[in-house]
Design a binder for these strands. Structure first.
Lengths: 365, 365
DNA sequence: CTTGTCCAGGAAAGTGCTTTCCCGGGCTAC
DNA sequence: GTAGCCCGGGAAAGCACTTTCCTGGACAAG
């Protein structure tokens, strides 16, 4: 009681920018302790419900003070003291793209019950942005970082990212990638190549013989893998792909629209079937064909990749390769949460499933 | 030099859970200072490029040490020291819904250059989840919190959220809402009511006389506002809405599908036109009508709301009310970043624009 | 009655950073 | 030549927590 009285409250801290007029009522654990008439230590122990037990009287007093003051622990300070936080950093290339938002949704869902704080950054393609974000997460003492999206074929950028990720891991974090296995960390790996290959086989089986590919961005490995897989699948049936009909384009609806335009402009001949390396592009292609008055699937068939949920109702229904996107997000979350204990990264392949719909009806020959 | 030698490096800190085998190489500012042979203070000043100038020699030495050691500041510690962080918390109801991911994309975009760290939580409807998240953000000393999505008509929940937000603001944060103005904070307010009203007028002008409304979830104010606005718009033309044809349903494709089913099942009569309170539901309705062999727009016209970008290519193209979703995200970011200095919250109404497309061709009478 | 063992509570030392305050040297002004 | 003044550098005091270590009392065992 003697000391306690002398232990005057520290003066309100300097709070630098201090919003105009907004009185600052940040309440600290010390405030709680004071109000409850206990030591800071005891207050901390009650709040943390940790190993150390506290008597029921004190516990009660502290809890009451917490409620009365509306106390919320300063999580940053806690992170500094303990050396780790509950944050999980996530990067996607474009959150507005349903491919990414589906995966993110799965991840967030799986994470909800686990008391983790998910931070999403939309890095608009490019390893540079991801690099920066991983570094930021290192600064946040993030528990993990999840890099969602295709790797690029830019070797230098990839090395830089690899180094950054490795620094993050050395600092005690965990890293997971959804895409290609190029970072030396746990990876959820959609089987783009095999999926596209299977799709090619199915399309040939339906009677299609000449193909165009709307191949996505040149430097994106996912696009490359799907294109290559498709070509390989055709080749297995001795069907060759006309290089003039393999045209690049952005991974967007408009990218698909323009790539389709390029195919149509390439000459009077037309392919039996167009494979767009993702559904979003396929929708753009459909729009372009409709604008031209070309009937799908009667004149030209169209197939996509991903089986995006929100696109399941375009007309005609799109043949595609289904990837369990939400599930992939959950799998990523599980990788983040499970201790590995093993020395080598886990690679989890995710097969795609060919879904034939009306956009590629059988072609009578 | 005398002191420096004695100033032995602190022993490596206790690092509690310590991943198996993962050697912990967290490098601190002290390490940098030691390596550069300068004081902690100087190192800090160099790293922060703050007001205080440091001589070129020291600056250089520190920068070199930073590079060599791969130093990344512990942002949590910085936040503790300064009393604020660069974090912005964002809640959406469902990140997988294009409505939300578009707004989020706009927000993230606008935020990229500003050195802010965006944390997104998907709170799956419900003020309770938002409450919890705002509290979490208070613990993170977040600079701001952005609540994206409709308020519900649950008064108690709303009060709780309001209290939590107010605690957040008292602690020096800023709050922005995208939805209804019910929280007493800066708000981006889509004019749902007016938009639906205008849509109703346009549809009547096209010759439609009997309407069904797929009205969304009962407790969601956005759904309610749109329904009410639509009803009011009809009434202005002396058209009444048959209550049996106002059916609730989830804000999803499947919700729209089922609500449409309910309308069809309600009797032999059919409405001229169906208004789904958002595009996603409208797409579900289209699917249901197609399944029934009912032609849109010849037999029944369909209209939605939002003008979701990825849905712009459904067939037939959907009449809707366009909301500038990405722009709304940017506006929210701007509200977050601009100091207000005013005493009362800013409310920014966002008008919707009626877009007539083929799903509601004029009906000859 | 003494000794040893828990046990709840508190003081204090940490966590990595910022920022205030102090100090000594070089400069200019008179 | 000296008084006054910046100016770059460092020591130390925060910031809001956690956790170790200590302490005094209650209790059981001998």
């Amino acid at each position: 009681m003697t000391e306690t009285a002398a232990n005057g409250r520290r003066p309100r801290r300097r709070r630098p920018p201090m919003r105009a007029g907004g009185l600052d009522l940040r309440v600290t654990l010390q405030d709680v302790a004071d109000r409850a008439g206990v030591s800071l230590t005891t207050a901390s122990r009650v709040v943390n419900e940790g190993a150390r037990r506290v008597g029921p009287v004190m516990t009660d007093r502290v809890n009451r003070a917490v409620a009365e003051l509306g106390y919320m622990a300063n999580l940053q300070a806690r992170a500094v003291a303990t050396g780790h936080s509950a944050m999980v950093g996530v990067t996607v290339h474009n959150i507005d793209d349903p491919y990414f938002s589906s995966i993110a949704a799965g991840l967030i869902d799986a994470t909800r019950t686990r008391q983790l704080l998910v931070c999403i950054s939309s890095t608009a393609h490019g390893e540079a942005g991801e690099c920066q974000y991983v570094s930021l997460m290192r600064g946040q003492l993030a528990r993990a970082v999840v890099l969602i999206g295709s790797r690029s074929d830019d070797q230098r950028a990839r090395e830089a990212l690899r180094a950054e990720v490795s620094a993050f891991v050395s600092a005690g974090g965990r890293a997971v990638c959804v895409g290609q296995d190029m970072l030396g960390v746990d990876t959820i790996m959609p089987e783009n190549r095999a999926g596209a290959m299977a799709l090619a086989r199915s399309l040939v089986a339906l009677g299609h013989r000449s193909f165009a590919v709307l191949a996505g961005p040149r430097d994106v490995l996912t696009a490359k893998d799907r294109t290559d897989g498709f070509r390989a699948g055709l080749r297995a049936w001795s069907v060759e792909l006309n290089p003039r009909w393999v045209v690049a384009g952005a991974f967007t609806r408009d990218g698909g629209y323009e790539a389709m335009s390029a195919v149509l402009a390439s000459g009077p001949a037309r392919p039996d079937c167009v494979f767009a390396v993702n559904d979003v592009m396929a929708v753009g292609a459909l729009a372009r064909l409709r604008a031209e008055g070309i009937s799908v699937p009667d004149d030209i068939a169209v197939a996509g990749f991903d089986d995006i949920h929100t696109l399941r109702d375009v007309y005609p229904p799109l043949t595609t390769v289904r990837l369990p996107l939400k599930r992939m997000g959950e799998m990523a979350a599980n990788l983040v949460l499970s201790e590995d204990g093993r020395d080598r990264p886990r690679i989890i392949p995710v097969p795609g499933e060919v879904i034939l719909r009306e956009s590629t009806l059988p072609r009578p020959r």
